[in-house]
Amino acid sequence: MQEPTLLLLTALADAPRHGYALIQEIATISDGRVKMRTGTLYGALDRLLGQGLIEVAAEEVVDGRARRTYALTDAGRTALATEAERLRAVATEAERRLAKVRSMLQGKTGPELRSTIGGSFA
């Protein structure tokens, strides 16, 4: 799953949201790193609607502005949960390996440290 898709599904995980709210939520989740533009957002929404991962939850007019609210479908929730589990497994494995190296390096410096790291990959 590509990152924009993951962020979009995550932004919809806890509540249905409309277009601009999704852009704001994605910026928050990604710590300001991803600023989705309007065309890109609607490209992703169209694709996810086509795949049945999201649905239009409501259509309304707020302050004279057209507003559609989008929500995850059951298939979308399953896809997001599967991806979250996959990412969790990768992160756990990364932490386990880093912790292993850290424990080997405790108290070692300089050449000794380098030979320990080299030896662990030999």
Partner: peptide
């Protein structure tokens, strides 16, 4: 300008049938 370009680019994709879906 970037927003306008992005919006127009997706419009062209929709028109040409070259969207991600």
């Amino acid at each position: 300008a970037r927003e306008v370009f992005d919006l127009a680019a997706y419009g062209l994709r929709v028109r040409l049938g070259l969207t991600g879906g």
